[in-house]
Design a protein around this nucleic acid. Structure first.
Lengths: 135, 135
DNA sequence: ATCATTGCAAACACTTTGCATACGC
DNA sequence: GCGTATGCAAAGTGTTTGCAATGAT
């Protein structure tokens, strides 16, 4: 598993250091789109010398190499996603959890954007998740 | 015009001070969803004593009273919208301008979210706008 | 030995908070 | 005059930068 990640990073021109490999692996395994804080707090248990700077540096590098995308739902927290295909995100206002969902189609008023070049598409919903509604 | 705005604020339980009226008016007249900085820099010409704190306070009040929504496109800049109905936003990476567009329909994989309560929906695209493509 | 990566500390940018002043009824 | 709104300065938060130490080849 960790071997695949190394290969994947190499293929994208990223030297697979321990920190980078662990951070990317974390993103793959935690589909809930963690914030920098969450990642740092979890990974520092494994790598005691880890610093937040490295987490930031690593994400900026991953962004440049286009192997992750930024998810901007809340103004004050940046989240990351290792799945760069188009899909939606649902954030629960109560527990803060972020869920992925598939989008079949979006029909927009095409006229307005017909001369625009669209590079990125983002869709997210906010509300209450299944578990929080039960409470 | 300014009278209508006063009335609208009052109706929503907001005392229409000069600052609040001007800020709301600015949002109505500038559909490009300005950042706090843009609003402050423009309005300070009219109201020389204006402070950014007041702009922030006012937006937080408007948010509480649900007469505006936050648009989160970029992590580091919060934009505001006086149109609280669901529509899409397009941000040009080149000139930074934000455009509105209408959404006719979104088809998602309903199963995933069928037990979720959706309170807010946000859709935005990024790319190059008509004018910047010409250059 | 060389070059890239890491990580501390300081700087930055955006937003909120504390509090004294000014304003409106 | 009393209660609210304003706005300065300071604090808070998330992110980036400068740079010295470390690590890999």
């Amino acid at each position: 598993m960790s071997k695949n990640i190394s290969e994947h990073l190499k293929k994208n021109g990223i030297k697979p250091s321990l920190q980078r490999t662990k951070i990317y692996e974390y993103l793959i395994e935690n589909k809930n789109h963690p914030t920098v804080d969450q990642i740092y707090n979890d990974l520092v248990k494994d790598i005691p010398t880890l610093s937040k700077t490295t987490v930031y540096n690593t994400f900026n590098l991953f962004m440049e190499k286009n192997i992750i995308t930024i998810i901007t739902i809340e103004e004050n927290e940046t989240r990351y996603d290792a799945d760069t295909t188009f899909h939606g995100h649902f954030k629960c206002d109560e527990c803060g959890e972020v869920y992925d969902f598939d989008i079949d189609d979006i029909q927009i008023n095409k006229d307005i954007l017909k001369d625009f070049q669209i590079n990125e598409r983002h869709l997210y919903f906010k509300g209450k998740c299944k578990d929080c509604l039960k409470k």
